[in-house]
Amino acid sequence: MNQTPSVAVADGTRIAYRFDGDPSLPVLVLSNSIGTTLHMWDDEVPALSRRFRVLRYDTRGHGDSDVAPGAYSLDRLGRDVLELMDALDIQRAHFLGLSLGGFTGQWLGVHAPERIDRLILSNTAAYWGPAAPWAARIASVLQAPDMRETAELFLRNWFPADMLQANGPQVQRYRAMLLATDRHGLAGNYAAVRDGDLRRTLALIPNPTLVIAGQHDPVSTAADGERIAASVPGAKFKLLPGVHLANVEFHDDFLATVLDFLTV
């Protein structure tokens, strides 16, 4: 039986969450990449929870959150965060999102900046390209016999070749998360990525913002990160010499960069 606490948001979908850290500390919300769960942050939480009350959640369609039917929207993903914060009586919080989580973070900075203190956008983009390839991905994942081919495609985009070849514990952990992802949840989130475009509104973000990018990231390129940083007034930019999962490949540098920014 699932014991993960959850909150029902406006459309009835239950969003699973977890707290770590002393309740008296400032809240830091962590938002996961597509194809993962709140456990993608397991290695970062021990250090972060010494300084913050860390709130992790499973993006709808992932982990222990409900798999709502149909296409999701970026607006709905952002409102999931706000309604989760409302239910937990959190007025303001820092926010760190990676990939899809960073896309959600951009939406929050544009549409609900009064709820966010400092904003960290890691390995993400404001626009992920034309709709047609995303429609093809949605059809492919829904028609595939299982998640194995999809999982391996993700891993090739997330990790450098030497890590993949070594097939160490981190690669195995992320493969397991991908294989456990519900295809309908993945397709629903693909639709949010397909339809979202924040390029013209990023300049509205007033929050202190840090953008982290990977030099060799094929998913959200270094140029994508540079464009976000150039669009958000006063944003800081950090380039790490890695691929997509900066928190895994350059764990120590990632943590140091995040903590330096949040504890100014």
Rank of each mutant, 00 (worst) to 15 (best):
E152S: 09
Q143E: 15
L82Y: 04
Q143I: 02
W107N: 07
L100K: 03
A132D: 09
A144W: 09
R137W: 02
Q91G: 10
M163C: 01
A126C: 14
L121P: 09
A166T: 00
G129A: 05
A131F: 04
P160C: 07
T150M: 11
P169T: 11
A139G: 10
G97W: 05
Q106N: 07
P160L: 09
I120C: 15
G129K: 00
P169S: 11
Q143L: 06
M85W: 09
L108K: 01
I90M: 03
Y127R: 01
R118N: 13
M85H: 06
G109R: 11
W128F: 15
L100Q: 12
L100G: 06
R115L: 04
T104I: 15
D146Y: 10
T124M: 13
G101F: 04
H111G: 12
H94W: 06
S140L: 12
A112S: 14
L142H: 12
I90L: 11
L108I: 07
H94A: 14
Q106G: 05
A166G: 03
L155H: 12
P169R: 11
Q143K: 14
W158P: 02
A132F: 08
G168V: 00
D89M: 05
N123H: 13
A161I: 08
T150R: 01
E83P: 01
V81R: 10
F103Y: 13
F103K: 12
Q165S: 13
Y127N: 06
W128L: 11
W128Q: 05
I90S: 03
D86H: 04
L164M: 12
N123T: 02
G102E: 11
R118I: 10
D162I: 01
G129I: 09
L100C: 07
R118M: 13
L164A: 10
P113F: 00
V141M: 02
E149D: 14
A126R: 01
D117S: 15
G129C: 06
A139Y: 05
L98D: 13
E83C: 06
L119V: 15
Y127G: 05
D89Y: 03
N123P: 02
M147Y: 09
L119C: 15
N157W: 06
F159N: 08
S99W: 12
I138G: 08
F103D: 12
W128P: 03
W107G: 02
A125V: 08
I138K: 05
A139I: 02
S140W: 13
L164K: 00
F159V: 02
H94M: 14
L155G: 06
I120G: 15
S122V: 10
D117I: 14
G129R: 01
Q170R: 15
N157Q: 11
V81K: 11
R115V: 07
L119K: 04
D89V: 05
G101L: 07
A139P: 02
L153T: 12
L88D: 01
L164E: 15
